[in-house]
Design a protein around this nucleic acid. Structure first.
Lengths: 178, 178
DNA sequence: TGATGCATGTAATCCGTTACATGATTCA
DNA sequence: TGAATCATGTAACGGATTACATGCATCA
C-alpha cells in the first residue's frame, strides 16, 4: 500500500489544507501519532516534490515577524494518486519494541535494569492512554474515533498485562471505564 | 538503545550459536517475530562485519549437497558490546499500521474496500494469535513466555475491539481463555 | 536571559529492503 | 515437474533520520 510520508501528507490534506509545520504537529499529536512517524527532513522535501508534480498547490501566507507560511492543498490529481495508494489492501501491522527485546534478554541483564525498563514501559503506556483520554471527546470524525478506540483498547491490554505480571506496579484504583 | 540487526543477532546468539539462515528463521518465526523484522540482505553483511570486528566467531560445517553452513557464536567482546546496547533504557514502542491509516481515511474510500481491509486485519490478527497458541506451551524461557503473553493480550484486545465495532465479523464461539 | 514555539529548508548519513545470482535436495 | 527448503551472499536503491543552518516572538 505504499505508506510513506507522501501518502501520509496527502491523506491529512484531504481533511484540511496545512503547512509542513502543521502536518508535523498533526502527525505527532493527532490521531496519526499512534501508528506513524515523520520528521521535517522527510516532510518538507515531500511537499516540494509533490507540488512540482501537481499533486498539491501552495499559497504563501505572510506573517509578521515569522517567515512566510506555505499552506498546501491537495489537487484532484493528488486525490487520484492517494486513491490509488489506498486501493491496495493494507500490509500487516508492524510493531517495533525495544522493550520486548529487553524482556527476551532477561537471562542477560540485571533485575534492577529490568525493573527500570518495565517502569518506563508502564509510564509510556499510561502517558499514551492519558493523551487519548484527553483528546477523545473532542474529536468528531468517525475515523479518528475508531482509531483512538483501537489504540485505547490495545494500550489498556498492555497495561493490564504488565500490572498482572509485575504486582510491583501498583494498580492505581483501576476500574475507570471497563 | 540502538536496536538494529546487529544487536538483534548478538541477542539471539546469547541463547545458542546459529547460522544466518537459522537467525532469519528465528526472527520471523520465534518469539522475536512479534516485534521485529530483518531480511537476509541485512543479516549476512552484519554477521560478516561483526566477525571481522571480533564480536563473533565462525565455524564452517560441511554438508552433503548444500553449501557449507557458517555457524556463528558470540564472543566475550560481543557480549560486552551487547551489554552496552542493552544498558540504555528501551525507546518507546513504534507501531506502524497501514490498516489504521485506512480507517482514518474513511471519508475517502468505499464501504466495500473498508470491509475488505477490516476482514484482512481481522484475519491477520487471528493468524498471529494462532501462531502464538501453537508455540506457547512448547517454550520454556521466562523471556519468551512473557513476550508471548504480552503479544497475546494485545492481539486479543485488538480482535475484541474489531469484533465489537463490526458485528459483521461473527464472533466464533469466543470464550476460549479469558 | 534562556527556553519554547513558530517556520522552512538542506546535506550527510544510516539502515534496511528488494532484486539478483547460484544451486542442490526433497516432497507432492 | 515444480514448489519448497536449505544455504549464502552482493548491488542497487529507497526511505527516512539526524544534524545543521537561520531567525523572530513570546513567556517565565
Amino acid at each position: 500500500m505504499a505508506m510513506n510520508v507522501r501518502t501520509l501528507c496527502l491523506g491529512i490534506l484531504t481533511f484540511r489544507e496545512a503547512s509542513g509545520y502543521e502536518l508535523k504537529k498533526e502527525i505527532e499529536d493527532g490521531s496519526f501519532s499512534h501508528f506513524i512517524d515523520a520528521s521535517y527532513g522527510s516532510i518538507y522535501p515531500a511537499l516540494t516534490q509533490m507540488n512540482a508534480e501537481g499533486l498539491l498547490t501552495v499559497r504563501s501566507e505572510e506573517q509578521a515577524g515569522r517567515p512566510d507560511k506555505k499552506v498546501y492543498a491537495i489537487t484532484d490529481q493528488g486525490r487520484t494518486v492517494l486513491a490509488k495508494s489506498l486501493a491496495v489492501l493494507p500490509a500487516k501491522d508492524k510493531f517495533k519494541s525495544e522493550f520486548l527485546f529487553e524482556m527476551l534478554m532477561q537471562h542477560f541483564i540485571s533485575k534492577d535494569h529490568m525493573d527500570e525498563a518495565i517502569d518506563k514501559q508502564h509510564a509510556d503506556l499510561l502517558e499514551d492512554l492519558a493523551h487519548i483520554a484527553q483528546k477523545r471527546d473532542r474529536v468528531c470524525e468517525v475515523g479518528s474515533k475508531f482509531v483512538m478506540g483501537y489504540a485505547d483498547s490495545v494500550l489498556r491490554a498492555a497495561v493490564n498485562y504488565l500490572e498482572a505480571q509485575c504486582p510491583r506496579l501498583k494498580k492505581p484504583k483501576a476500574k475507570a471505564a471497563e
